[in-house]
């Protein structure tokens, strides 16, 4: 008779349920309709089952996105949870697709599911990775662009976890500013 350790019987629950989304532009569909929910999960095991199953970001076709947001939050500015918020933006150069992109994206996912932003984790809505010819981007989206302390703490934790060199700064942009500046860069409300 085999005894199974309790660890093997019970999955490890996450603080939040998360939804993974995939975006691929299609000419006859609206932008919003091109965002597709892949799956939701609320345990560590189910996170890995999903992550291990899907293409890494670096292998996606140019123009595609992955997003991972708390369940009930759509990966778009217009969602009521996002519209007053903004994002920490990591811009990658073309070389970094093969060296950093997958690592960075995975680390961001682990930060989120692990609630690594301490009490500021509630401000986190989700994250997006954009695979683009001119350079890939990763954004960590937060709910309220006026919560200075939370935004700065989230940015600091993010920068340390991604091992971004001290002299390289990353910026936080409010979505309302980004909306107004299509094609060029929105101003940074904060940098770390």
């Amino acid at each position: 008779q085999k005894t199974v350790a309790p660890d093997m019987l019970i999955k490890h629950p996450l603080q939040n349920t998360w939804t993974l989304w995939f975006f691929k532009i299609e000419s006859n569909r609206s932008w919003e309709d091109c965002q597709v929910e892949i799956a939701s999960f609320n345990t560590v095991e189910d996170f890995w089952a999903l992550y291990n199953h899907i293409e890494p970001a670096s292998r996606l076709k140019v123009g595609c996105d992955y997003s991972m947001f708390k369940q009930g939050i759509k990966p778009m500015w217009e969602d009521e949870h996002n519209c007053r918020g903004g994002r920490w933006l990591i811009n990658l150069n073309k070389q970094q697709r093969s060296t950093e992109l997958d690592n960075f994206w995975m680390e961001v996912l682990l930060l989120m599911i692990g609630e690594s932003f301490e009490e500021h984790s509630d401000e986190v809505c989700g994250a997006v990775v954009n695979v683009r010819g001119k350079g890939d981007k990763i954004g960590v989206w937060t709910a309220d662009a006026k919560k200075n302390d939370s935004i700065l703490k989230i940015g600091q934790v993010l920068k340390v976890r991604l091992n971004i060199p001290r002299q390289v700064s990353i910026g936080f942009q409010a979505h309302t500013d980004t909306m107004l500046k299509s094609g060029s860069t929105a101003k940074n409300r904060f940098t770390v």
């Binding site: 682990l110 599911i113 692990g114 609630e115 690594s116």
Partner: peptide, 18 residues
């Protein structure tokens, strides 16, 4: 209230567990 927090090393250890 309480919050469920997972450290990075623990999450990575779980990656290939059955």
């Amino acid at each position: 209230g309480t919050r469920i927090i997972y450290e990075r090393t623990f999450l990575l250890q779980m990656r290939n567990s059955p």
